[in-house]
Design a binder for these strands. Structure first.
Lengths: 245, 245
DNA sequence: CCAAAAGTGTTAAGCATACACCCATGA
DNA sequence: TCATGGGTGTATGCTTAACACTTTTGG
């Protein structure tokens, strides 16, 4: 499964393998120590940061491409993935950053190089288990790291807008679908879920109301009590009801 | 502003003007006589029906392309338009229908013709005033007509799925945004709005509850009474509050 | 006067919010 | 015994739903 760097580079740079002018960008959310985080790549030998992304192979579904990017960056499969918007403005096409990246990495090109053309990008957001993900930079990047959603470095092109729109979608969905199952460990307390929701929404929630709403949803199942070591009553532990029976 | 058919055909068939492998498809909703309708095109000399769609010019925003398609099909500008999903599966690419269309219309092509390649399509839905729209077929089509949403002919490729997803999105939005302003006349009764919502949602709504909810929204303004000619009390007429003052 | 549609009042149910109180635990 | 976080009971207010009743109009 190991490929030499040359082969990786050759494949990555071979535009004929991909749908031209089309890319996927992934906003990969993780949650750790009460902070909502996303994965951000840094291009080698430059100061450009970007969202993990990739191109769509000629014989590959757009969703598959996003899943592939996710697997390559995190080592995880079967990830919660949601297409939320397609970014198709002309002014998002700015070849200068990519030129710098290619120059800085000794990639030969002319002005018509396929990677310098206008791209329309399909935005996906993913929810992953922070502790299971193993971020790995791609061939063009020197790092792929978690950043607090409130402390993301300046991103290339319109990637800040993409993050903003992803977060908006996530916030709209947090009340409807059950987000926690993707971002928390298998077992969690009611406090864990509430803190997660508060972090995502950026606001405090009523404790008792939240507690009851979650219980009434019928999605949770108590499996015992947790010894927190804290000087207070031990909270119940829950799993998602669908996990069992 | 009139162009000869030859020039229109030449431009429409010149793939170099467009983003390759990318299209927009529009689900154009109208409302008339208690029926929700969409515009459907029929290709010349074939029995293929499709959604109004088009390609994205190299120097054109995706949204602009959708607005252009809308204007060309309806003669309307400043239309409510909403991007709702991008369809990027490989198996949606089936060149056979398009081959038939080109054959039936005397368009020369080889197997590599750009219109026969795989396309990824950005889906938009639009809400237009039925009485103001003037549906016009494009160069490839012999008709562009309104069809009841429950009585749409068999559509090409995955266009049925696109309609389904557009309708789902519209149904999700009907309670949040105020859809009526785009689909009704300037003046309308409470019954008009309720019937519109019932048609979109496909279910009966509580009359008094709906009435009050609408009034409480603060979006409506009474402007007088309507003589319906019916043997019953004359209903109030409303306009959208933002229209005045 | 009657049927039909429209407008409005009243009541009940459901839900989230707010507050209160008790429980369990470690220091 | 005290502070802290967790679980649950009770009261309040808001929104929606359901029903009833009145109003207006043409036949």
């Amino acid at each position: 499964m190991q490929k030499s760097e040359e082969i990786v580079a050759e494949e990555a740079l071979d535009g004929s393998r991909f749908m031209p002018g089309l890319s996927v960008d992934c906003v990969i959310f993780g949650y750790h120590e009460r902070e909502l985080k996303i994965l951000v790549s840094k291009f080698k030998n430059t100061s450009y940061y970007s969202l993990p992304g990739g191109f769509i192979k000629r014989n590959e579904d757009a969703d598959e491409a996003a899943h592939r990017v996710l697997f390559e960056r995190t080592g995880l499969r079967d990830i919660y993935l949601n297409q939320f918007y397609t970014f198709g403005n002309t002014h998002r096409a700015n070849p200068e950053p990519m030129k710098s990246v290619m120059l800085a990495n000794g990639i030969e090109f002319n002005g018509n190089h396929w990677m310098l053309q206008r791209f329309i990008s399909i935005g996906y957001y993913a929810l992953v288990n922070y502790t299971r993900a193993e971020p790995k930079p791609d061939f063009f990047s020197e790092s792929c790291l978690w950043y607090d959603i409130d402390d993301v470095p300046k991103l290339m092109q319109d990637h800040r807008l993409i993050v903003k729109k992803a977060l908006e979608t996530l916030r709209n969905n947090v009340n409807r679908k059950f987000i926690g199952v993707n971002l928390l460990q298998d077992q969690f307390t009611m406090g864990d879920i509430q803190k997660l929701h508060e972090t995502i929404l950026g606001e405090k929630l009523n404790r008792t109301g939240f507690h009851r709403k979650m219980l009434n949803s019928g999605l949770l199942k108590r499996i015992g009590k947790k010894k927190t070591g804290g000087s207070h009553r031990a909270p119940y532990l829950y799993v998602f009801h669908s996990d069992e029976e």
